[in-house]
Computed example of a mutant assay.
Amino acid sequence: MSDMQDMEAWGFTDDRGTALEAVRAPRRVVAYVRAGAALLDLGVTPVAVYGSGHDGDTLDPVKAGRLAEAGVPYLGPGRALDAARLADLRADVVVDVTYDGKSAYALDEGVPEGAGVPLVALSVGNELALAAILGRFGELAGALGAVAGAGGGGDVGGLAAAEAALRGTASEVDVAVLALSGAGAGQVHLARPHAWPELVRLQELGVRVVDPGPGPGANWLTADRERVAALRPGLVLFDSREHAVGAGAFPSPGGARVAPWNPETPPSSLAYAAFFLELAEALRRAAA
């Protein structure tokens, strides 16, 4: 970033509708893991990242993207982060995500406020299409000084190619796909496709994503293995995050194939291109 850019006033409006201003573009970014991994893909390296209430004292490798490879420090779950720590890090901005368009997901908003650090929260909820979510993270990365295409994260063509490959595979095979998260004690949380922007996108690309049917829960329907078997999936996308119960604790029904799914895939073209290509291969294996 040039000295001239440093002297220019900076502004950005996040997805809560909060307008942020600073005398110069922020350089030192502290972010929630998912947001930080996306920003790294997009050419902005955070000085540190923190987890959610689901995370422990070590970085979940599934959620981390390339953060560990880049040597970005992990601060533990957001509840352990306080204003003094942000001040020690000399943070210029905190970047979190929001699911409701009103509040940050992983960090108490009073923490950055107490440190005098602006908070940016970008939506990852179902009120935006996946393309819009990726676009907003791209806008933020640009506002933070990223060079377009840095780190491969701006490779929209790569995402387009991956989507085309997945669309082609989906047109050739007929495999029912069920996305879920292990809950233990013989139970799983079944994802409602409309509640997850990436699952909506899979449906748009021709993938037959199964809806679990009526019952409580806006994003998930908690069910037993009999309910899962009745849905007759050919491919189960199993939540691969560390806090979720692993696939081994819940045998796949009817011999269905199992593939990993990260419900917190970093919102970058690079990360979603990789997911779509992996899913295309999983569909081919399930159909074989």
Rank of each mutant, 00 (worst) to 15 (best):
G149F: 02
Q203H: 13
A146S: 09
A183D: 10
D155Q: 06
L144A: 04
R167Q: 12
D211W: 00
G158F: 05
L205K: 04
E172K: 13
V188W: 07
A179D: 03
A218R: 14
G168F: 08
R192H: 11
R192K: 13
L140P: 02
G149T: 01
G186L: 11
A146R: 01
G154H: 01
S171Q: 15
G149Q: 04
S181N: 10
E163K: 07
G158C: 08
E139R: 14
S171I: 11
L166W: 07
V177Y: 04
F137M: 08
V207L: 03
G138V: 01
E172C: 10
G215A: 06
A164M: 06
G152L: 09
L205W: 00
A183E: 11
V209R: 07
H189Q: 15
W196S: 12
A160W: 09
V210L: 03
G153L: 00
L199Y: 05
A183S: 14
A185M: 15
G152N: 05
V175S: 05
A176N: 10
A170R: 00
T169A: 12
V200N: 10
E163T: 03
G151L: 04
G168Y: 03
V156Q: 12
R136I: 11
V173Y: 01
A183T: 09
V207Q: 07
G206R: 07
G184C: 12
A164K: 09
E163I: 00
W196V: 15
A176M: 12
E139C: 11
E172T: 15
L205N: 03
R192S: 06
R136K: 14
A176W: 08
P216M: 08
G217A: 03
A179W: 02
R167E: 11
A185L: 15
G138N: 02
G157S: 06
R208K: 14
V156P: 07
H194R: 15
G213S: 06
G168A: 05
G138H: 05
P197H: 06
V173H: 06
P216E: 14
E204M: 10
G145S: 09
E198S: 14
A162Q: 03
G145P: 02
A191T: 08
P193R: 09
A165M: 11
P214T: 04
A218W: 12
R201M: 11
A179N: 07
E198D: 15
G153F: 06
E139P: 07
E139V: 11
E198A: 13
G217M: 00
G186S: 13
L202R: 02
L140I: 05
T169V: 15
G158E: 06
P216F: 06
L159G: 00
A160R: 15
L144N: 01
A143P: 01
G151I: 05
G152K: 06
L178K: 00
E139G: 12
A150C: 07
A179T: 00
V209G: 03
G184A: 12
Q187Y: 14
A191K: 02
G149S: 04
A164C: 08
E172W: 09
D174E: 15
G153V: 00
A148W: 10
E204H: 10
R201V: 09
V177H: 02
A164I: 11
A162T: 02
